[in-house]
Amino acid sequence: MPDREPSSNISGGETGGDIVAEFDPATAETRAERVVDRLGELYWEKTYGGQDAFTCLVRTILSQNTSDVASQPAHDALLERYGNAGSDRELEPEADSITAADGDLAAALAAAEQSALAETIKSAGLYNQKSAVLIDVAEWVLEAFGSAAAFDSFVTDQPSETVRETLLEVRGIGPKTADCVLLFAGGRAGVFPVDTHVHRIYRRLGIAPADADHEVVRAVLEREVPPAKCGFGHTATIQFGREYCTARKPACLDDPDACPLGDLCDQVGVYPATDNVVDPAEADD
């Protein structure tokens, strides 16, 4: 499976796709759009969609409450053992060899022994909990759709709200996971998944209320950012959060001019004078 963040640059430039990037903060209609447009000056615009929906779902579940550095090895190990990466892999005693040969990851995980799956994904953290969720989700996919391929068709063909509502009914699938499947597998415009970076940054900027939960932040962004820019806004904000607006030491603490979004930010919960940083919900009024 390719990286969750698509690698194809379509924004033009020497290594791009010869498409003029449409990021112009001067013409943005909202501050949220100006932020995304400013990020467009820093990061590539990329294509979204095309990933296998069930594999994307598995990858996102593994990434919950951990970093990509920790979850990527777990994802790779899971695919090596249970995916279609080779016919000589070790099967669980109760696994169906026909299912394994068919390469249906949902069938393979539904037949997996939980302790073996937990050991396989150990690097992702919370491996006992995540292994149980993965088996339950795989069983749900087989019961509701019959196969991983049919689930993929559901994600790509049905309306976004139908897909989202259906996914949110399943234990272990939260809003961010559902939205990542819609974005990275379905390629849906207007979907702005909210992870910890997005949640922190748009409250810190003052664009979303300081005490907003993930769903409120999502509603604000999907209302104020044009649909075609939401996917890019998600991945670019994550990059910005890793490089500039980190949780404990944002760039503005060392240098007010170090942050490329400094003039658009309310610095909610960030106090350069005291070198103190708190969650926006705990900020002084």
Rank of each mutant, 00 (worst) to 15 (best):
P2K: 06
P2F: 04
E5M: 14
G13V: 01
G13N: 01
G13E: 02
G13K: 00
T15F: 10
D18H: 06
A21M: 13
A21N: 13
E29Q: 15
T30G: 14
T30F: 15
T30C: 15
A32D: 00
E33R: 11
V35S: 08
V35G: 07
E41Y: 12
T47I: 12
Y48T: 05
Q51C: 12
F54T: 05
T60V: 13
I61A: 03
I61N: 02
L62F: 15
L62I: 15
A70P: 00
H75W: 05
H75F: 14
A77H: 07
E92M: 13
E92C: 15
P93S: 13
A100N: 10
D102G: 15
D102S: 12
A106I: 12
A108T: 09
A110W: 03
A111K: 01
A111H: 08
A116S: 14
A116K: 11
L117H: 02
E119H: 06
T120M: 03
I121L: 00
A124F: 09
A124L: 10
G125H: 11
A132W: 00
V133T: 14
I135K: 15
V137D: 02
L142I: 15
G146Q: 11
A149H: 08
T156H: 06
T156D: 09
Q158K: 13
Q158W: 08
P159A: 04
P159N: 05
E165T: 12
L167S: 01
E169P: 00
G172F: 07
G172I: 06
G172R: 02
K176F: 09
D179P: 09
C180I: 13
L182W: 11
L183V: 03
F184W: 09
A185L: 06
G186A: 01
G186D: 01
R188H: 10
A189W: 11
D195T: 10
V198E: 03
V198D: 02
Y202E: 05
G206P: 07
A208Q: 10
A212D: 14
A212F: 15
A219Q: 13
V220R: 12
L221E: 02
E222P: 13
E222K: 08
P226E: 04
K229N: 13
C230K: 11
F232Q: 06
G233T: 11
H234D: 08
T235P: 03
T235Y: 09
T237V: 09
C245D: 07
A247K: 12
R248Q: 11
K249G: 03
C252L: 11
C252S: 12
D254I: 00
D255R: 10
G262H: 07
D263G: 07
C265G: 07
V277T: 06
V277L: 01
V278D: 02
D279L: 11
P280A: 05
A281G: 04
A281Y: 00
A283K: 04
A283H: 03
